[in-house]
């Protein structure tokens, strides 16, 4: 089944595009069928239906009741491998 992943940043402009692209690459690599929903952080609560994972480049304080992984390493390059593993652990289920 297709997994829906919300990828969000402040303006849905720059950093979420980078993160979304990285997640797409990762899913292609592991043959995971994924549907990326790239939005602003403020819009997350309206798009939660059927979401398997939320990735943001800015910390979100709210608990949306959906697995969450920080995507900051896709921007900084530090700790990217751990982020990839955390995403896989959730999506490969």
């Amino acid at each position: 089944m297709k997994k829906k992943v919300i990828v969000a940043c402040g303006g849905a402009v720059a950093t979420s595009t980078i993160a979304a692209n990285k997640i797409l690459e990762l899913c292609r690599e592991y043959d995971i069928d994924v549907d990326i929903c790239q939005i602003r952080i403020s819009e997350i609560e309206f798009h939660l239906d059927g979401t398997s994972l939320i990735v943001t480049t800015t910390k979100v304080k709210k608990d949306y009741g959906v697995p969450y992984v920080s995507g900051i390493s896709f921007i900084s390059g530090i700790g990217e491998e751990q982020t990839r593993e955390a995403i896989l652990a959730i999506l490969k289920v």
């Binding site: 940043c9 402040g10 303006g11 900051i72 921007i75 900084s76 390059g77 530090i78």
Partner: peptide
């Protein structure tokens, strides 16, 4: 102000 962009790279 709303979405800061500072990063610490090593």
């Amino acid at each position: 102000k709303r979405f800061p962009t500072g990063l610490d790279i090593n």
